[in-house]
Design a protein around this nucleic acid. Structure first.
Lengths: 257, 257
DNA sequence: TTGCCCCTATCTGTATACATAATTTTGCCG
DNA sequence: CGGCAAAATTATGTATACAGATAGGGGCAA
């Protein structure tokens, strides 16, 4: 069978991933289709249709669907098969709260157990990089760099907790489009409002890191929780601004490498 | 092909489930094999071996393995295939902490949003049933009834939060043998120590429910978290007493209907 | 005797064939 | 003209065939 992706309508999602397994390719492409809105919420995801669309056979498509079910992006229909899960605003808020709660737990564990020195140092470096982005003032193009460093900081906090189980659980909670720490993409790139929001987030980053260093578990946890609630504001703003879900796909996909 | 389970070495795990799909059967049986210790931690789970052992073909076995991977019971090997995940004591403690944290979040959300009256009433009924079990004093055979009602109470709290997303996440966190709220099975049935532990748990139940009714979110959350840490003691006791993981399989499996 | 290389046996990933169940469409009757 | 039923199409669940890869064992050479 022809396995290259020359005629693949969703091949842009797997740029540079052509060596990966068919299952992973199907998973990434399906995620992209769902988050990008090309598959409407509530719509049935026909396996054969996906075979035509993704260029892989039914087996990897089916495996990808099982994975996506656990990621809360599709749900199993009672009569068999899967449908794109419709995300209500309250459920997204809950997902954000779950992520914040678990990241708060990670921060507290890091503070109570003590975080490895190299991770602390790496976090300081990341925060200084963010400083160089946000301190000079609002500038275009700084947003995507911020998102990258922000995601790295969150990953470092989770790593400091030293638990693979916790890391996985957090990763799963952050799959939903607006629940990811990188979900501030819909913000207006150059606006003063955006810039102030980033400054506040950076303050929170510093407090979390300081609390972890000082072994202040409760403080680290509370601040991390509050920090996650920044996403609430972003979601509210995005819902008011209109449907720009497609933009989120890139950030959401790039954050789980 | 012969599809009945007459020569099925693990058929006891699916008693009453013969109408279910092959995938679900494979998932339940594999869970039982892993939690029951028949598959040793770190051991590779050969698909063909499981085909022989479970009496289903490779496709359902493979689907079940993907599900179990998301349940943290197996992990994907870099070279392909899966292996039984080895659960270190610290990781189990983390899993308990995750469950407690998320159940605490559920209790707080129930308190802040207000729980449906019928669920509150149902919870009161359950607590009165538990009272009838533990108040008269230590008695044999009360333990399994306690476990059942205890699981029901925890489910009710989660339901009160009114979020399917949160419910799923908690369910996943509670799959690990000792992380489930039903994980007090290894306790000695008739001992005074066991009875006092149950009494304390029941006090905590009452406080959580009262806090939810009074809209005391922080109190409900803190008490629910602390309540989950009861499992820490049970784990410690079980590890001292010796390996009786097999007993936990039943409780763990029955709690996720 | 020991270490390295090759060969074999098995295992996974993928594709596909087949049977059962669900859904849609079409035709007929009221 | 509308509703219901039946048939056909399509969907999923399951089993299996096949190819590439991997790991392990045995044999040969130093």
């Amino acid at each position: 069978m022809d396995l290259d992706d020359t005629d693949n309508s969703a091949s842009s999602a797997v740029r540079g991933e052509r060596a990966a397994s068919q299952t992973l390719r199907a998973q990434l492409m399906l995620r992209s289709l769902i988050i990008g809105g090309e598959l409407k919420p509530g719509e049935r995801v026909s396996e054969l249709q996906m075979v035509d669309r993704l260029g892989v056979s039914r087996t990897p498509v089916r495996a990808a669907l099982i994975h996506l079910e656990h990621e809360n992006l599709v749900e199993a229909l009672p009569s068999g098969g899967y449908a794109v899960k419709e995300l209500s605003e309250p459920e997204i808020l809950v997902a954000i709260e779950i992520r914040g709660t678990l990241e708060g737990l990670a921060a507290r564990m890091a503070a109570e157990r003590g975080a490895p020195a190299d991770l602390i140092a790496a976090a300081h470096v990341v925060l200084e990089e963010i400083d160089r982005i946000v301190l000079p003032g609002p500038r275009p193009n700084g947003l995507e760099r911020y998102v990258r460093h922000n995601a790295r900081f969150h990953d470092l906090i989770v790593d400091m907790a030293g638990s693979d189980t916790l890391a996985r659980q957090i990763e799963r909670a952050a799959v939903l489009p607006f629940a990811s720490p990188s979900a501030l993409v819909p913000m207006e790139p150059g606006s003063v409002e955006t810039h102030q929001s980033l400054l506040l987030s950076q303050f929170q980053h510093r407090i979390v890191l300081q609390a972890i260093e000082l072994r202040q578990g409760a403080r680290a946890e509370a601040m991390m929780r509050e920090h996650a609630r920044t996403a609430h504001c972003n979601l509210r703003r995005a819902l008011i601004a209109g449907r720009k879900l497609a933009e989120l796909a890139v950030a959401s996909l790039s954050s789980n490498s």
